[in-house]
Each structure stands twice: as structure tokens, then as C-alpha cells.
Design a protein around this nucleic acid. Sequence first.
DNA 1: ACTATTTCCTGGATGC
DNA 2: TGCATCCAGGAAATAG
Length: 313
Amino acid sequence: MPELPEVETIARGLAKRVTGDVIESVWLGEKPEPLKSPAHEIAAAIEHSRIVSVRRMGKHIVFDLERAHLERAPTPAKGRRSKTKQPGPTPKLRASSTKFEALADGGVRSARSESTKSQWIVHLGMTGRLQVCSPKDEVLKHTHAIAKLASGRELRFVDPRRFGRLSVAVDFDAGGIEPLEADADSFIAMFRGRKTPIKSALLNQKLLRGVGNIYADESLFRTGIRPRRRASTIRRDQFVKLLASVKEVLNEAIALGGSSISDYVNSDGEEGFFQLQHRVYGREGEPCLVCKTPIKRIVIAGRSSHYCPKCQK
DNA sequence: ACTATTTCCTGGATGC
DNA sequence: TGCATCCAGGAAATAG
């Protein structure tokens, strides 16, 4: 399940491969789709755009786009003058998405469409994958979006469990703070007065963005704090240690290309190796690597949580 | 304003 | 072998 390190790995891989390429057209699958923005808005915002950069924000992948100059004289996609969109010679620049064509030039587009910059936001959810491949490659089951690139390749979004999300934005706000950039004061301030278990607080993307179940458990183990501890009862020095652990765990995982559990494969099709470093996650009943006490598994807010009853207080 | 619980979704694992 | 059931989990929605 892609958390911050996996998404970072994927974003870096994608950046290497598609930066500078142009999205010529996009096909978006049948409903119900994993779309957050309406399909026609997504199509309108990303088609004919150059990928300026690909980066990670929390667990989101952000494609920074800039409208590419069209070689054709009349720029049909910019039909702000509302040419009444008659059934005239519709420029077939969107061969694939017939059903959105009528809408794409309609009144839906706000004045914002003047802007040449936009962002395509992809959240992989549990099982989402972005593959860069040849049009000849078999289209996998559960493929929900295909972007045709000027280079002749395709960028596909595949997501069996449909927890992933696609949307567009102008100035995307992922919420929360980046754990790797957080300083102790802002980190501590987020948890002040919260009675929720520290585990839940770490998972709350509005507070800290990018930490998921695996890395929350691993960070708490390294800090010696039980996942059920109320955030408000944790001392300042423990928070300082916790932040250090969070950064340490995330950085180690990024260095190893992320964890690879069941569904996760990075954009190069290779697996990460951090799962070999998991000290508590998925190790219920196995001996603690420090004290040999069997690792316990409990459920907090519906999430399985692993910890060592002796090492963590 | 917070916090806790439920829901979404499919495939793989498990049990009979 | 086949079929039902459970489980994984991020985040939005809903309930308390």
C-alpha cells in the first residue's frame, strides 16, 4: 500500500521518464470511476499539456502541467468565445473521449481555464499503479485512465480496488505538513490537546501528510511509544524523538525504494525492499527484534497496529 | 470542534 | 473443487 516512501519512489521514477513529454489526449474509464474531479474537467485540464515536473505531496503524485502550444491555428480547446459549439468540423484531437467532447468546451470551464498552468493529481489509494508503457502493451483489467503522450508512449492508471483518485487542481493543497520537512515545534503543536491515540493522529493526513499504517507502526516502535497512547499524554522530548523516528523510517524506506507488499510496484516495475526492515508491522506473534517478546497486534480505528508490549510504553 | 465508526472496492487467503 | 467469508486499508462520509 503506497505510503510516502512508495509514492516518493514512484514519483521520482515517473519524473525521470515523463518530464517534458506532452499529454496529447486522455481516455477515462467508465463510471463509477475513481475520479474526484469530473471527467471533462480532468480532460480539459490535462490534454495538450506538457509535463513540467512530477513530484510527491503527502501520498499524492502531482504532475505539474503547462499548456503546450498547439501547432494548429485555431486553438479549439480554448473556446472561451463560446463558438456555440456547433456540430461543425470538430477537431479530432481527442480521439478517445467522445463522450466528454461536448462538455469539454462547454460553459463548465471557468475563467481559470485562461491559466496555462494546471496540475494533475493522482492518489494511488491501496492498489493504484501508474505505468509508462507502449500502446501495444496489453491493457490490464482495472485500467481506469490512459494518457497518450507525444513520445508515443502511454501513461496508464490501473487500480483494481478503486481506492485511488484522480483530480485536477491549479494550486493543489495536500493539507497537513510534510513529515520530512517538519520541525519539532510545528510537529508537537499539531498533537497538542488531542485525545486520540497517537497512532490515529499520525495517520491523520490533515495533520501529517504521507504517513500510513506501516510507517506509523514502525515509527512508534522505534520511539518506544504504544500506538494507543493518547497524543495529549506524550511529553515534549518523546515527541522530538518520535519526529526523528518518523524521518528516519521514511528516509530509510525511500533509500530502499519503499516497502513492497502485495500490490505495490514502483513505476519501473521493480519492488521496494523496505519490508525486509519492518520491525513490527506484519510480525504479530514473532519475537521482538530487541527483546524477543512476541509482537502484539491490536486494532485502532479499524487499522491493525503492531507493537512490542515490552519495548513500547 | 473532535473523535469514532462505517463505507467504499476487489482479490487473495482461509475454512468447510 | 467450489463456494462463502474474512481481511487488507486511505480517506471521505456519517454518527456520536
